Amino acid sequence: MGKSTDPVTGSGVDKCLAAIRSMVLSGELLPGQKVQQAALAEALGVSRIPVREALSRLQSEGIVEHKSNTGYTVSRFNSEDLAELYLMRRLLETELVKTADLSRIDVAAMGKLHTEMVAAARAQDPDEFQRLNRQFHFAIFDASPLTLVRQELQRLWYMSDFYRSLYLYELETTQRLVAEHKAIIDVVRAQDSKRLLKELDAHRAGTEKIVVRRLGHRRRPA
């Protein structure tokens, strides 16, 4: 495959961003694993320049880390890190829901996403379920005018994508999530922000518990 003649274009960097995020989500790149820039550039048909730019952006999002002697590696989280991440998610998501205009939300579109998630759960397709799940939740958050808060929340979601994907291989768990999503749709339809906050808090707490359990309660090194 020929390499791009304009490797620093936005499309080239975006291509690398999407590819690396997908590799982290699928487990092709595991937490703590070094990112081989030359091999990645070759696989994507680009030069190393957009790969480096993409990795620099992912570093700012907390998805990868950089050390001068080892280069870029996929960030590794422990149970305490994830507890902080979920705390930040709760704070930001609460503000977004409180300021959201629920009448702007396309409930029919959320229902369609819900139907597609049911199919993804039955097909045991965690990548598709994860993609749809993000769209489902941000259909709510996008109804808030707090753009910077929403962008920061997007970063937090990206940081924890791989860890959330761990439980998406469990059919029982995805079925529970789908049932909770149905309840969330009903509350959005009723435009009841207080009930929506309660539903989302319970939903988030349940997924955090599963993620920490799957992580094995690994703690920060002393």
Score class of each variant (00 low, 15 high):
Trp157Asn: 12
Gln36Met: 09
Gln59Tyr: 07
Leu92Phe: 11
Ser103Ala: 13
Pro50His: 12
Gly206Met: 01
Glu80Thr: 11
Gln36Ile: 12
Arg220Met: 02
Ser165Tyr: 02
Asp142His: 15
His181Lys: 07
Pro221Leu: 14
Leu102Cys: 02
Ile20Ser: 05
Gln36Ala: 13
Gly45Pro: 07
Ala54Tyr: 07
Glu42Cys: 01
Asp201Glu: 10
Pro31Trp: 07
Ser26Arg: 05
Val97Asn: 03
Glu93Ala: 07
Asp14His: 01
Leu166Arg: 05
Leu171Val: 04
Met88Cys: 13
Ala121Gly: 08
Asp6Ala: 14
Ser68Thr: 12
Tyr158Glu: 06
Leu171Thr: 06
Ala202Trp: 08
Leu102Phe: 06
Leu197Val: 09
Asp6Tyr: 15
Ser68Ala: 12
Leu196Ile: 10
Ser193Lys: 15
Glu152Gln: 12
Glu116Gln: 13
Ala121Leu: 05
Phe136Val: 08
Arg89Asn: 13
Leu96Thr: 01
Val212Gly: 05
Ile105Ala: 05
Asp201Thr: 05
Leu30His: 10
Val211Thr: 09
Leu40Asn: 07
Pro126Asp: 01
Glu208Thr: 03
Glu128Leu: 13
Arg131Lys: 08
His181Gly: 04
Asp142Val: 08
Arg122His: 13
Val64Ser: 03
Ala39Ser: 08
Leu153Glu: 10
Met110Asp: 03
Thr174Gln: 01
Asp192Pro: 07
Glu172Trp: 00
His66Lys: 15
Gly32Asp: 08
Asn69Ala: 11
His203Asp: 00
Arg176Gly: 04
Gly206Asn: 02
Gln59Pro: 00
Gln130Asn: 11
Arg131Trp: 02
Leu25Arg: 07
Ala190Gln: 15
Asp192Val: 11
Lys98His: 05
Cys16Trp: 04
Phe138Gln: 08
Asn133Gly: 10
Arg219Trp: 09
Leu196Ala: 06
Gly12Thr: 13
Phe129Asn: 05
Arg164Asp: 09
Ser22Gln: 13
Leu168Ser: 00
Tyr169Trp: 02
Thr9Arg: 15
Arg176Glu: 09
Glu93Cys: 03
Arg150Ser: 10
Arg131Gln: 05
Glu65Arg: 11
Glu95Arg: 15
Ala109Phe: 11
Glu128Ser: 13
Leu55Phe: 01
Tyr167Ile: 07
Glu199Asp: 12
Gly45Met: 07
Trp157Ala: 13
Ser144Leu: 10
Gln33Asn: 02
Gln175Ile: 04
Arg214Ala: 06
Lys67Asn: 07
Ser68Asp: 11
Asp14Arg: 08
Arg189Thr: 06
Ala205Pro: 00
Thr115Pro: 00
Met1Ala: 10
Glu84Leu: 15
Gln135Ile: 11
Lys112Asn: 12
